[in-house]
Design a protein around this nucleic acid. Sequence first.
DNA 1: ACAGTTTAGATCAAAGATAGTCAAAGTCAA
DNA 2: TTGACTTTGACTATCTTTGATCTAAACTGT
Lengths: 149, 149
Amino acid sequence: MLMSDAIAEMINNLLRESNGSLEIKRNDLAEKMGCVPSQINYVITSRFTPERGYIIESRRGGGGYIRIIKKEMHKDEYLMHSFYAIGDAIDAASAAAIIRNLADNKLITAREQAIMLGAVSPKALEKLASGENIVRADIMRQQILALMK
Amino acid sequence: MLMSDAIAEMINNLLRESNGSLEIKRNDLAEKMGCVPSQINYVITSRFTPERGYIIESRRGGGGYIRIIKKEMHKDEYLMHSFYAIGDAIDAASAAAIIRNLADNKLITAREQAIMLGAVSPKALEKLASGENIVRADIMRQQILALMK
DNA sequence: ACAGTTTAGATCAAAGATAGTCAAAGTCAA
DNA sequence: TTGACTTTGACTATCTTTGATCTAAACTGT
């Protein structure tokens, strides 16, 4: 088996044992698996992405760690739908419509709606020379990803 | 647990017991915790910063002390404070710190924090050729304005 | 009051402990 | 053969711990 797959399997086992959330020492795990530490990063970036439902947190220095959290997927379908509805670029009006939909469907609160609208408002992006709709799409995607946590 | 975290926890406990304001003897605390005195300074500088709402006062010499005060701000005050803390441009780490403060001080929920973070994450702004920090500042301001409504 | 001594916190830089990034080299299937 | 995926390791960034040295405040004897 591929080293990266073995590492991923190890992490998955640990996740299962620990009920969906765990902390590892990068160097320890690397040593246990017999690989270089940076390969742990590779495995995490390639397989434990937010898109696949994982949250990663880490800290360097003494007592450093990497925390991996598996979030429960269930009512995220609507969010997924919105996520893909955004596309590569989106204008302010369409963005507002999508956000309003989320609110209408009780996926976000009124306050959350206001925050999201603020972040993608023309005012927020006024300094952009160009590509406003592309950046707006990226921002929205990150916001929706944040909701799926 | 990490020594610095243990010290921070100790201070937090004392703060809670004493209702938001306390005085410690640096050397005594260091001895109690089993660390060098200067580590107390390190913990204070890294975790009890004014940015996080703490005021530090101290005195040297006989009867010296370090006083730590947790400052309570009112919501509007805090939002204003954050708004101005942003400045014309802001990097991702500083933005995260400000957002985290809002959450720590119960001005936003964990979900709102996640949304705000998402919107100003490097990932959300990765398409920008330049001026990332300027756009980030604008986005943050609009998000905070949304909270003041 | 003054000078010298003692007490106690501040500062800073070096060393230690971790994790992240990036690009080059390797592998493998289409 | 090419392109995607994997493996490595050098270099970087961040956080923590420690101790030497500096500075300020209080105390003491005259």
